[in-house]
């Protein structure tokens, strides 16, 4: 078990270093390590590229992957649905909608315009609120309709609805502001500055660490809400805490990286498959590590390899991991079994 965690940590480290080394300008691994450890590098340029251009991207990828994966793992237990994930159930779309309302709605005399950090926080807050709104609706429906496949369809529809609202907002807005929105729907861990990274790291980091406290109650929830209640778990409070943490994790991630799909779905399944247990004390940290690896690898494939000049949206790469997992879950009948 600890060997597996060591392997995952090693993979995260390798993926990070490779991403730091590769790119439009290749930098030797030794030089990357020297830059990271603060020793003298052979050229100032490589130091700048590693620390200022590439490191924020890598750290953002690490955090975004971990945040989405832990959010997905919590949602799968909360919804009692193996297919739940922030992207699939429209939570990310809700976050985009929230952000879009603020970005596009504050044109011209908007009170947020030009307020730098404040407007940034406004967008972030609106994204979290949008995520929370969709989560509340989806959870309300999921608790009435037990069938995971129905909930899945409902989530997809909520996502479309939020997307349509964003499209309508876009239609009525002047083109200048659209640039700010373009990144949202495609998913990207680039273009994140150290300042922004501070917000991501602080909020997601705190929630990720605190989610360890939810591991035991989530284990009890695996038995069902009534059993969890009989074990002394305050089910309503745990629901609220999970909703809040998923809203923050997926809202923040979406606000800075856009909607990155399927990581939250695939990582927990891979974690459970590797660990051969559903114990959240192990599944949550393992999901975080696997989520980080998926996003880093996806970023490498999407353009961080320096082999091509063009770069793909992250979403089109993560779908290669996520879509097969959805099909596997559906076809292996796990979705049906948990619907009983």
């Amino acid at each position: 078990m600890s060997g597996l965690f060591a392997l995952l940590v090693a993979l995260v480290a390798v993926a990070s270093v490779v991403l730091l080394a590769q790119g439009s300008i290749a930098i030797p691994i030794g030089e990357v390590l020297r830059a990271l450890t603060g020793q003298g590098t052979e050229s100032d340029l490589s130091r700048t590229i590693v620390l200022d251009a590439r490191l924020p991207k890598v750290v953002t990828g690490l955090l975004a992957g971990a945040a989405l994966a832990v959010g997905g793992a919590q949602m799968q237990t909360l919804f009692r649905n193996p297919l739940a994930d922030p992207f699939v159930l429209g939570v990310s779309s809700g976050a985009v909608l929230g952000a879009a309302v603020v970005i596009l709605g504050t044109s011209g005399v908007g009170w947020l315009a030009g307020l730098g950090v404040v407007s940034q926080l406004g967008v972030t807050g609106a994204a979290v609120a949008g995520a929370a709104g969709v989560l509340l609706i989806a959870l309300g429906i999921a608790r009435r309709v037990g069938d995971p496949v129905v909930v899945l369809v409902v989530g997809v529809m909520l996502g479309y609805l939020a997307g349509a609202l964003v499209d309508m907002l876009v239609y009525y807005t002047d083109p200048d502001r659209l640039q700010a929105l373009a990144g949202f729907t495609r998913g990207s861990v680039r273009n994140v500055t150290w300042d922004e990274l501070g917000v991501i790291a602080a909020s997601c980091g705190v929630v990720l660490v605190l989610s360890v406290f939810l591991a035991q109650p989530l284990n009890a929830l695996l038995l069902g809400e009534r059993y969890a209640g009989s074990l002394g778990v305050n089910v309503r409070r745990v629901h609220f805490l999970c909703l809040a943490s998923v809203a923050v994790l997926s809202g923040i991630t979406t606000a800075y990286c856009g909607a990155i799909g399927f990581v939250g779905l695939a990582a927990p399944h891979l974690a459970r498959g590797l660990l051969r247990t559903s114990d959240h004390r192990l599944v949550l940290p393992a999901s975080a590590l696997i989520g980080s690896i998926i996003v880093l690898v996806a970023e490498y494939v999407a353009g961080g390899n320096g082999l091509t000049a063009t770069s793909l949206p992250l979403n089109s790469v993560t779908a290669f991991v996520g879509a097969p997992v959805i099909l596997w879950v559906l076809l292996s009948g796990r979705a049906k079994r948990s619907a009983r």
Binding site: R80, G224, R226, R272, R276
Partner: peptide, 12 residues
Amino acid sequence: VTLTEPVDVGQM
């Protein structure tokens, strides 16, 4: 308590 509802705890 034990309940009538079936439990599906995944891999445990």
